[in-house]
Design a protein around this nucleic acid. Structure first.
Length: 217
DNA sequence: AACCAGGAGACAT
DNA sequence: ATGTCTCATGGT
């Protein structure tokens, strides 16, 4: 069994289904993907709670907010000036593109470049949106993914984003791709954030000692 | 009380 | 093409 498929099986057995993405609507997935850039999810939750309390979470309602007001609302998630610009550029694109009703009709090969062209949307943010908001079969690669598979000896720790994503997708096969990519990414985060952080010395790690947290292997 | 978090872009080499 | 710096708050 290829390593990524074995890791998926091991983590799924250990932790169970994760039911990702943790958001209430497809649009919230997009907002959350920007807010969580290099930021702990607990901080994002605080920002999302303030946003929900202030306005309906739609692109046009967010664009109607004065930027300095939006800054204050998302402040708990950090980088609040930066992320305000990024949220606004994402919302402007989303509205101009006709929102989900129009974008759902596009093939992934057209949708992905359009997302990547939005200022502030990089590889991981684009792919998170594609997988979790559009349910497209695109594997999400994050720092944990690279760390874990390199510590398992499967890839170089310096492997770039695209080669790693393509390798993972090839290894994971052609069946139930959206569900499997969804579950694997969620489980990798769950493993690193909950299990590795709770047990920094990796007692009874389901994968392998030092697979995710330690800075130096 | 340093250290880090579910990155991305600008800029230099 | 590949490195380094900046951006900011909250939890450990």
């Amino acid at each position: 069994m290829p390593a990524p498929a074995a890791v998926l099986h091991t983590l799924l057995t250990a932790y169970g289904p994760q039911h990702w993405w943790p958001a209430r609507t497809r649009f919230e997935v997009m907002i959350g993907a920007v807010l969580t850039q290099n930021t702990a999810w607990t901080n994002v939750e605080q920002a999302m709670a303030q946003l929900r309390a202030a306005v309906p979470l739609t692109a046009s309602d967010l664009l109607a907010l004065p930027p300095d007001r939006l800054e204050q609302l998302i402040r708990p998630s950090g980088y609040f000036r930066l992320k305000t610009r990024r949220l606004r550029s994402l919302c402007q694109w989303f509205v101009a593109a006709g929102e989900f009703s129009a974008l759902d009709r596009l093939p992934t090969t057209e949708l992905r470049p359009k997302l990547l062209a939005v200022h502030g949307v990089g590889h991981e943010t684009a792919d998170s949106i594609l997988l979790y908001a559009f349910e497209r079969p695109v594997m999400v690669v994050d720092a944990y993914t690279r760390r874990i598979f390199s510590r398992l000896g499967e890839v170089s720790p310096r492997i770039a984003y695209e080669p790693l994503r393509e390798w993972l997708e090839a290894q994971l096969g052609e069946e139930r791709r959206v569900a499997r990519y969804n579950e694997l990414h969620a489980l990798l985060v769950r493993h690193a954030v909950v299990s590795c952080r709770a047990r920094p010395r990796c007692e009874s790690c389901v994968l392998r000692q030092n697979c995710a947290t330690a800075k130096t292997a």
